[in-house]
Nucleic acid binder design. Structure first.
Lengths: 219, 219
DNA sequence: TCTCTTTTGAGAGCAGTGCTCTCGCTCTGG
DNA sequence: CCAGAGCGAGAGCACTGCTCTCAAAAGAGA
């Protein structure tokens, strides 16, 4: 039942726009609006559930894409696969992407349960980075060292994501990560309208350039 | 009068959250909701006006920040100033930033009038790039050439923004641009909660790294 | 099989929303 | 001085999230 409501909500989200209505969901299910409240205490709670699902779906997409590359030593290939997987999921479910990477909903405060699913994609990236580092193929030449102020927290992130890499490399990884999500947001939110038409090729270029920026190579 | 309504809307946006209510604006102005419709045909039209203002405010912030650097040959300094200026505006008016760089509102279709103000910041960046290129201080060594498919459109953007630079450099500029806005979005939308606390320092690091990535130097 | 309890949906209703319409008041130009 | 334009008030429509009560349905224990 809960799943049915969420499905209806997703459907409505997909074809209606961002603001979904409990009453419309109920209408679609031939129910009365108050019945929904048996399963979700409020609209926010439904939204939270959808957000959590979206995080997990994106995380799973990233994980599967990363795992699909046979040659585990092909770090560039793995990186590109994850990057493509993330974009594929985002373009396939743009509204769910907007739910988690768009402007936050007004009163909504992210519960603690969302932080673990939300970092699944960056964990995948971290594993690639770690493997590349272990294989001694992560060049750190000419890399810019962050100011001391940032080092402890970068080290903490690295310890969780890719224990072997330095703070400077971790910083670059976060930057590359930020760039990719910025690119997806720009694309989905229509920032490139009438500017770049082949958005897939443009994203591919960005992913490759960011991989080079990180020093990831094919072998 | 129109300005008064927009001011009230902005105020309400700032302290209320994303969804502003015409009736609440009217209430604040001791008016009745229907009176607002004398000045704005719909809520969307008000929103559009606010979006346009936000674009122009951000553009002006970027332009002023860029112009504030005396030494026009200090390309790194100019880049950093613009980057800081953009972030300063965004953190000062997060809701207006969300209006233009967050998830798009459902039925809203950006009118043609918004595209010119919306690219003002990237025009500022283009000028820096162009100056650096003219001064012969823009290294293109080891730069990744985009696939042929992308070249025409990149050339077109370059022709408008920074006529002298190559497609490959233009691509990097767009990537750096994307990264910076991704960073601001991540910060404002709370993606770094409990991860990085000194967000100003982190942004500064990113801006510097992106400048290096572009090859911008101080002299 | 017959109770008793829990679960579930329906319906009415409240306060709020965007928006439309009509009706008067006020202010201004000729 | 007075017609016409501009403006705000008020009522009203269809919609929203949400709360409440009440009656069926389902399940469990004897």
């Amino acid at each position: 039942m809960i799943d049915e409501i969420k499905d209806a909500a997703r459907r409505q989200l997909a074809e209606g726009g961002a603001n979904l209505s409990l009453r419309a969901i109920a209408r679609e299910m031939n129910m009365v609006s108050s019945a929904i409240y048996r399963y979700f205490a409020s609209r926010d709670e439904l939204l939270t559930a959808l957000i959590l699902d979206a995080y997990n779906a994106l995380g799973e997409a990233a994980e599967q894409a990363g795992a699909s590359v046979r040659d585990r030593d092909d770090h560039l290939g793995r990186w590109l696969a994850v990057a493509r997987g993330v974009r594929a999921w985002a373009t396939a479910s743009p509204h769910e992407y907007a739910l988690i990477y768009g402007s936050p909903v007004p009163g909504y405060e992210a519960p603690q349960d969302t932080v673990e699913p939300s970092i699944r994609p960056v964990v995948v990236l971290g594993a690639i980075l770690e493997d590349a580092h272990d294989a001694g193929r992560l060049t750190t030449k000419g890399i810019q060292r962050p100011v001391p102020d940032l080092l402890p927290e970068l080290a903490q992130i690295a310890a969780y994501i890719a224990p072997g890499v330095s703070e400077a490399v971790m910083a670059r990884a976060l930057i590359a990560w930020t760039e990719l999500f910025g690119a997806i947001s720009f694309e989905l939110f229509g920032r490139f309208k009438n500017t770049i038409t082949d958005l897939a090729a443009w994203y591919e270029h960005q992913a490759r350039d960011m991989a080079a920026y990180l020093g990831l190579t094919a072998r």
